[in-house]
């Protein structure tokens, strides 16, 4: 699969933040204990006029600003999310129109909990490899939902990242990708329900850890690498604790994961989570560096990627769009009442 990979990338994080302590105080819990337990200090909140489509468009436009690709050369768009604005009406059509890629292209929306974005990267990679398209755009984005008072309310946030996959001017070669998938009901949202349900502690060992460790181990066996061969590692980050723990179990150090560990500052952006981490790594990566990424989507499955940064990264106009670090810092705090209004908790008919 040589010479196929990421040609450009972009990410987007909304400006509003709510501190875990503010949410905790509403529900009679101790904010410091919650923050320490989850490894999340605050989370991003979409404004009232933002959703998965607007976040995807902003991330995709940033990717286009960093390169010189004609959007008309994009032959496929896959948007991974579990919060598509419509149940029936593809987000990808809105994104395609807004970046000027329509009408001669393939479009579909993906859903696989928090790994639908990496599934899109895999599809685009395969289509490029098959010479069916010149470039593909894969986006992982969410304005994730959490029921008021649920543990998820401390983490469910908003953000996303977009990746243009192709053969020309590849800045990060995707050396290999594989997946690990089982039927594991750890987290779900039934049709027409507003908020997801989850299996509490069941989301840990048999779900997150089993799938990431199996996928990561299989990938390293396949490409014959060890954790120390990588400069950066990114794991799905539903909270600040799980990715640190799974990295340690696999033999990666904290230094390898810290650049891609964004969840303490913005929460869990679901389909965007591991991909915003990858965008953060690409913001600083140098030629020759090697990147390991394993996503996780409840239900359940993991996608693993072995990536090498190329010399072309120095030619990418990375300054033409904001970095993840800049967007993490560009924030405005809100109280719980404002959060309730912005996230439609005050829904009535």
């Amino acid at each position: 699969m040589r010479d196929i990979g990421i040609v450009s990338y972009g990410s987007y994080i909304p400006r509003y933040r709510i501190k875990a302590g503010v949410i905790a105080s509403v529900w009679g819990k101790d904010g410091a204990t919650i923050s320490r337990g989850l490894g999340i200090n605050e989370k991003s909140v979409p404004s009232i006029d933002q959703d998965t489509a607007t976040i995807s468009v902003e991330a995709a436009r940033s990717a286009l600003k960093r390169c010189t690709i004609d959007p008309q050369d994009i032959g496929a768009i896959y948007i991974g999310s579990e919060s598509h604005p419509y149940a029936v009406k593809p987000t990808g059509t809105i994104v395609g129109e807004a970046i000027g890629a329509t009408p001669d292209l393939m479009v579909a929306d993906y859903e696989f909990a928090c790994k639908a974005g990496t599934a899109g990267v895999q599809s685009c990679t395969a289509l490029v490899k098959a010479d069916m398209i010149k470039y593909g755009l894969a986006v992982g984005a969410d304005t994730s939902q959490a029921a008021p008072g649920d543990a998820l309310e401390f983490s469910a946030s908003a953000g996303g990242a977009a990746f243009i996959i192709g053969r020309d001017n590849v800045v990060a070669t995707i050396n290999h990708t594989l997946s690990f998938t089982t039927d594991t009901p750890d987290f779900w949202r039934r049709a027409e329900r507003k908020y997801p349900s989850h299996g509490g502690r069941f989301t840990g060992t048999p779900a997150y850890f089993k799938h990431i460790i199996s996928c990561a181990t299989n990938l390293m066996q396949k490409v014959d690498t060890k954790p120390e061969d990588y400069d950066y590692a990114i794991f799905h980050q539903p909270n600040g604790k799980f990715p640190v723990s799974v990295a340690k179990k696999l033999g990666f150090t904290y230094d390898q994961i810290k650049q891609g560990l964004i969840v303490p500052y913005i929460g869990n952006t679901y389909s965007g989570a591991s991909l915003v981490g990858l965008a953060s790594v690409l913001d600083v990566a140098k030629p020759g560096e090697r990147v390991f990424l394993t996503s996780y989507g409840s239900g359940a499955g993991s996608d693993g990627f072995d990536i090498t940064i190329t010399d072309k990264i120095t030619e990418l106009a990375r300054d033409n769009a904001p970095t993840v670090a800049q967007m993490v810092e560009d924030k405005e705090y809100i109280d719980y009442g404002t959060y309730a209004k912005l996230t439609d908790l005050l829904y009535w008919e």
Binding site: S47, I48, D49, Q50, D51, A53, T54, V57, E58, R61, P85, Y86, I94, A98, P322, Q326, D330, Y347, E349
Partner: peptide, 25 residues
């Protein structure tokens, strides 16, 4: 310019997107 939801036809209707503007950083 930035891409945002402009309005929607209630909870069941179409969502209308378009431009708003934000300060240049």
């Amino acid at each position: 310019n930035t891409f945002r939801r402009i309005q929607e036809d209630g909870y069941t209707g179409a969502i209308y997107y378009g431009y708003k503007f934000k300060p240049v950083k």
